[in-house]
């Protein structure tokens, strides 16, 4: 088994101005998805990220405030999952709830360094 990071990209719900009813509908889909993954034993953890971002750059450590990318490229959160292969994670990602809101999932394998 290998570990993968599923990175969720897309506009924040705040930006989309979702109504309470729509948010609840989204929530239901996310619950169903994470429950399904949990049952299958894929899910190891994850976090949601606040949309506000800061960036530190250059030798002078210049601090600038985001956003640095377009809304649909914003990272909203990530899951760490454990699976056989990247293809298996692609399969999992098929149920990601927010494709219709211009969302996307990026899949990155976590490098394991041999001792």
């Amino acid at each position: 088994m290998k570990d993968f990071m599923m990175i969720f990209l897309g506009p924040s719900y705040e930006e989309l101005g979702l109504s309470p009813e729509q948010m609840q509908e989204r929530m239901g889909k996310w619950f169903a998805w994470s429950e399904k993954m949990g049952r299958a034993g894929y899910l190891k953890g994850g976090n949601a990220l606040v949309p506000v971002s800061k960036r530190v750059t250059g030798p002078d450590r210049v601090v600038s405030d985001g956003p640095f990318v377009e809304a649909k490229e914003m990272i909203g959160g990530y899951y760490i999952v454990s699976a056989e292969s990247a293809d298996a994670v692609v399969k999992i990602a098929e149920d990601f709830p927010d494709y219709d809101l211009d969302g996307a999932v990026e899949i990155r394998e976590v490098i394991v360094f041999e001792q």
Partner: peptide
């Protein structure tokens, strides 16, 4: 409205 956004964000990862 903000409270709901926060809830949704938090719940996604941790119902």
């Amino acid at each position: 409205q903000d409270t709901f956004i926060l809830a949704v964000q938090k719940w996604k990862m941790n119902p």
